[in-house]
Amino acid sequence: MINSDNSQLHSLPLSMREVTIAYHRKPVLWEVNLDIPTGKLVGLVGPNGAGKSTMLKAIMGLIPLLSGTVRIFGKPYAEVRDRVAYVPQRESVDWDFPASVLDVVLMGFYGRIGWFGRITRQHQQQAMEALDRVGMAEFAQRQISQLSGGQQQRTFLARALIQPADLFLLDEPFAAVDASTEQALVHIMRSLQQAGKTIIVVHHDLHTVPDYFDYLVLLNMRVVAAGPMETTFHRENLQKTYGGKLTILEQVSEAIRNREAP
């Protein structure tokens, strides 16, 4: 590979080459090729079981790849872990766990302070700032089992915000949250984007896709289409992604019509 190519690869927050993943001998991702440019707010969209969450996990090396490579800022994930912040699905944890909101946010430091490091006052300060940013400062001491779905999601986002990351991976942050949380999350994502960060968001509500994101990846086992929202979000691509699921397509075509006729 020639040098200029290399330098361009370095600047790419995410680059996947021929990535294939199978669970129990059934392919989940199939020869995925994807390059995400810097500073985009990316919607990762596809039908249920299209491999969206799997793709995020593959990016972080949580699932063994059958073949292919994933590069983050030109390097394997293990080398640039600090530059990636991950927000798991809200349902992936038991919210009955004995911890306060602040405890959960402080968990974001564990990776950096290592096995025997200490949580300092400064860490707590930073955690409080992150909580303030997501509008949860007053709930810092609250037991997490008493949070609403939206508050849980905000807590998770705050935990990601304390990491000095350049790439954010969010798994279904909008699933079953209240409208005000949804707006707050979008607002924070936009401000992250303005600070030059790249954000990849797994999302399933096609209506809001064109409003929230400026870059779109359509996934259904393979990458059906990827590119800027204006050139990628159209009926043909969606039909390819969602196949025969006409009910969804009807809703979407309405969304497109609304968008095209302002």
Binding site: V84, P88, V104, M107, G111
Partner: peptide, 11 residues
């Protein structure tokens, strides 16, 4: 608490 996040943090 959060196995997946722990793994993503390199634990």
């Amino acid at each position: 608490f959060d196995e997946g996040y722990a793994a993503s943090q390199g634990w």
